[in-house]
Design a binder for these strands. Structure first.
Length: 883
RNA sequence: GGGCUAUUAGCUCAGUUGGUUAGAGCGCUUCCUUGACAUGGAAGAGGUCAGUGGUUCGAAUCCACUAUAGCCCACCA
């Protein structure tokens, strides 16, 4: 093996082999299925730390399950991401000086497809760099033919069931671009504005004197006086005692003379303005909702280009909205309705493209009725057939599902699944295909031809295809073998921020269309943040680029570090240094393998004969590690499992057993054991660090060409027969741990008394455990002892000592020691011990403690107390020596 | 405003149903390079577990309040 591990070479070599040999692919049918669908990244996306985290967790689970022998499918794919993708292509067009309208719909959509062919593979390529074991033969796209068929079928079915309907909705509208904007396309900016205080006379009130023309009025504060002609109510808070008497009364809308009601709604803030709000349902999203609740008329007073229409009143018709504001305010003042004006700073939405002030506009949109879909989805989590991990996320899920609103699914875009609704005259037909629509239309009017049918111009929300992902990707609506075998999927791994958008909706779609929830476990992990705790984002420039990290530290390093620092319970702060852990670990594995390589020729063909305690210990430690790691992964405790495998490899194998092998009494057997343990360790490590484990397994000759560690079985530990044959038992395991304590104690003594490791020392061990004498040779080596004296426990020697749970270790000092410094140190130790002793004596004299605490706890406390007392005795003796 | 969460060593975080003298990694201090590995080894310093009160024989752990921070949703006419 080379002295240095070349991660790049290994990664470049193994991934294509895995993919080409079809190790990521399995056919449905045989064995127990384990399937996962990837949260599809946007096709426009590039790999960021969030993906790296999300996909590392999935790949660990998937590789582990595959090694367990499950029939495993991890299905990859991308999302067509309506707005994002359309924007990217429009931006490119703008560089050519064109708008999408110049191309026309069909040509534009062709152009986007072209873009997708050329650039859409970026993230898919980058995912391979991570080592994802996704089945690329089954890669899908939310806008491919099959997924599109599923979308059309779902829309049609929901329409037929009465769960899809068309209704009014407020959208963000850019009057200059003439298009609707999604919420994230609206940029909010603070702007200097005013609050206009306007008097709305109560019906029946009389004219007063000058300056206060009506005696009885309500005062309304508004930032949008020009929308006044569209008001259909005035609202107060139901708990607002000041205005309780007004509720149910009628007021006169200034300038129009129209009478509108005073209503009560929680939406109104008592403290803001006057506590009275004008309600303009057609021109404000909140007012729209209030209007829905109170059945108010929606009066649209504006044209699409931002000018006023005839409903605004003859005088204002045709006027630009801002011009209208000036004129209308002047008219209010003239009519005595304007009380006063205050300066006010508010957030105003602007079009992200042309920076025009965005208008809220009433429009017809398609909706899905969510309540009937939500109920069974709530039930599925309540009754435990679907489980959130960690469990607390179910609270958030319930909170949203129980207050669910209808879902507006139409979008005024060109890139996306066009709504399969067709219009002719006053009629609407909804069908999966244009042909089917024509059939349905002919049933209504036999003379209808294809040309008479006009398809809806809008497309569906991107999530309308994503919510079908777990079954549309498996072939639905066809009855495929994949669908029958791999649905429902096992685990869904995703971040908390799309529980509503995606997870909840998949639950509803899966139950509604497949009759079963789409997955059994929903694993929610945190979000990756930077060192300051900020969300990583392009605009902040604080993102770590996973590809750069792979370049610098290797994919294995990235994966392992992510696994180690990832907590399912909270967000993860990362900085570059964290990835050194993974890099160093890969190096450690490589170097340990090199050591083994140099000894492997000495290995005995089998592990036979009476094993030493150290050999028994490593075999049992391996057994324990296998069981622990399996169990932790079963519980989705990725971080703990990574720590366990790290600790097992580094502390158990490298720090202790490899050192033991160097001086083992029966080298052939010791190496044979190391080989066996190493094989298991590589398998345990493989889900976390696929490349280095594959490379090492081949370098060491554990696998032949054409074989892969990917398909080795994940170790479960040793069988009872093996354990019996080797004489593995807990007592020996504990004994070796105790022995190590003694070795550590001796090292500490050396450090304290500044005895260099190269110096051979005289050691005395006081213990009543007979097994210790049998270990003399190995102890001498481990302690670098010139000689070891054995003495019964409790015997005192005037030498520096450390007490362990198993023996008292004495170090004979032949050199000189700084007596004053030692006296001081001992005094410090004694003070500390006195505190412990006092505390534990108090505890043990407490009858309640002795009565209630478990026996083992009490016994341990007693033992500890005795030990501390003994330590004090030793130290006092030593203090005299140094006095 | 509604919902949720966090606060433990200088830093990032563990701490599984309440129970030994609260742990890990990084960083820091001291020592150690003739071969598996200095991307290493050995030893060590460092915490009144945010605060206050309560439940309990016993609280980092359970409850209440306070302070601070963060997330999601809704956002002020």
């Amino acid at each position: 093996m080379e002295k240095h591990y070349d991660s790049k070479q290994a990664e470049a070599k193994w991934y294509p082999i895995w993919e080409k040999n079809g190790y990521f692919h399995q056919e449905p049918g045989v064995g127990e299925p384990y399937s996962v669908v990837i949260p599809p990244p946007n096709v426009t996306g590039i790999l960021h730390m969030g993906h790296a985290l999300n996909q590392t967790i999935q790949d660990i689970l998937v590789r582990w399950r595959r090694m367990q022998g499950k029939n495993t499918l991890w299905l990859p794919g991308t999302d067509h991401a309506g707005i994002a993708t359309q924007n990217v292509v429009e931006k490119a067009l703008r560089k050519e000086g064109k708008r999408r309208q110049d191309l026309g719909r069909e040509a534009f959509v062709d152009r986007v497809w072209e873009w997708k062919k050329q650039y859409g593979g970026t993230i898919v390529h980058q995912q391979r760099m991570l080592g994802n074991s996704t089945d690329w033969q089954r890669e899908r796209f939310t806008f491919d033919e099959g997924c599109s068929r599923a979308v059309a079928k779902v829309f049609t079915q929901l329409y037929d069931e009465g769960l899809v309907y068309k209704g009014n909705y407020i959208v963000n509208w850019c009057p200059r671009c003439g298009t609707a904007l999604a919420n994230d396309e609206v940029e909010h900016e603070a702007s200097h504005s005013h609050l206009w205080y306007v008097r709305y006379p109560v019906v029946g009130s009389e004219k007063g004197c000058a300056g206060e023309p009506y005696k009885d009025y309500v005062m309304v504060a508004t930032t949008r006086p020009e929308t006044l002609p569209g008001d259909t109510a005035v609202a107060v808070n139901p708990k607002d005692e000041r205005y309780a008497h007004l509720i149910g009364k009628t007021v006169i809308l200034p300038l129009t003379g129209r009478e509108i009601p005073v209503i009560a709604d929680d939406y109104v803030e008592k403290e803001f303005g006057t506590g009275i709000v004008k309600i303009t349902p057609a021109h404000d999203p909140n007012d729209f909702l209030v209007g829905k609740r109170h059945n108010l008329e929606e009066i649209n007073i504006m044209n699409d280009d931002g000018t006023m229409n005839n409903l605004a009143g003859a005088k204002y018709e045709g006027m630009d909205r801002f011009k209208c504001r000036e004129v209308l305010v002047a008219d209010l003042e003239e009519g005595g309705f304007l009380d006063h004006i205050e300066d006010y700073e508010n957030q105003v939405g602007h079009c992200y493209r042309c920076h025009e002030t965005v208008e809220s506009r009433l429009s017809k949109q398609w909706f899905v009725k969510m309540k009937p879909l939500a109920e069974p989805a709530i039930e599925a989590v309540k009754n435990g057939s679907v489980r959130f991990v960690p469990e607390r996320w179910s609270k958030i899920y319930f909170n949203w599902m129980e207050n669910i609103q209808d879902w507006c699914i139409s979008r005024q875009l060109w890139w996306g699944h066009r709504i399969p609704a067709y219009y002719f005259g006053e009629n609407i037909v909804v069908a999966e295909t244009a042909e089917a629509a024509l059939e349905k239309a002919k049933a209504i009017d036999p003379n209808i031809t294809a040309e008479d049918l006009k398809q809806d111009e809008d497309v569906l929300d991107t999530w309308f295809s994503s919510w079908l992902w777990p079954f549309s990707t498996l072939g639905w609506p066809e009855k495929t073998a994949d669908l029958a075998y791999y649905y429902p999927t096992a685990d869904l791994v995703t971040a908390q921020d799309i529980i509503f958008f995606w997870v909840a909706r998949m639950m509803m779609a899966g139950i509604h269309f497949m009759g079963k929830p789409p997955f059994k476990n929903i694993v929610i992990h945190g979000i990756v943040r930077d060192a300051q705790g900020r969300k990583m984002s392009k605009s902040l420039g604080n993102s770590l680029d996973p590809l750069e990290l792979i370049e610098q530290y290797s994919a294995d390093a990235l994966r392992f570090s992510i696994a180690l620092i990832t907590s399912l319970d909270c967000d993860t702060k990362v900085n570059k240094e964290k990835f050194e852990i993974g890099r160093n670990f890969a190096t450690k594995i490589w170097n340990a393998a090199r050591f083994l390589e140099s000894k492997i020729a000495d290995a005995a063909p089998a592990i036979t004969g009476p094993l030493t305690s150290d050999e028994k210990h490593i075999l049992l430690a391996t057994d324990k590690a296998c069981k622990k790691i399996n169990s932790l992964l079963e519980q989705y405790r990725i971080q703990d499992s990574a720590l366990a495998v790290y600790d097992f490899f580094w502390s158990q194998i490298c720090d202790w057993y490899v050192e033991y092998v160097k001086d083992a009494p029966d080298k052939a057997r010791a190496v044979a054991i190391l080989v066996d343990v190493f094989k298991k360790a590589l398998c345990l490590l493989h889900p976390y660090m696929p490349f280095v484990t594959e490379e090492v397994a081949h370098q060491l000759g554990f696998l032949k060409e054409g074989e892969t560690i990917m398909l080795s079985s994940f170790p479960l530990g040793y069988s009872e027969e093996e354990k019996a044959a080797w004489g593995l038992d807990e007592a020996t395991y504990d004994f070796v741990n105790s022995k190590r304590e003694a070795i550590t104690a001796l090292r500490a003594l050396r450090a304290e008394y500044k005895v260099p490791p190269s110096t051979f020392v005289k050691v005395t061990l006081a213990s009543d455990d007979g097994r210790i004498r049998a270990e003399e040779e190995s102890l001498k080596k481990a302690m670098r002892a010139e000689s070891i004296e054995f003495a019964p426990a409790g015997q005192d020697f005037a030498m520096p000592s450390k007490i362990t749970s198993f023996a008292t270790v004495y170090l004979s000092l032949e050199g000189l020691v700084d007596k004053a410094a030692e006296s001081k140190r001992i005094a410090g130790e004694l003070a500390k011990l006195a505190g412990f002793i006092k505390a534990s004596e108090a505890k043990l004299s407490n009858e309640n403690f002795v009565a209630h605490a478990p026996e083992a706890i009490v016994a341990e406390a007693k033992r500890k107390l005795e030990e501390n007392k003994e330590k004090v005795a030793q130290l006092e003796k030593l203090a005299k020596l140094f006095a």
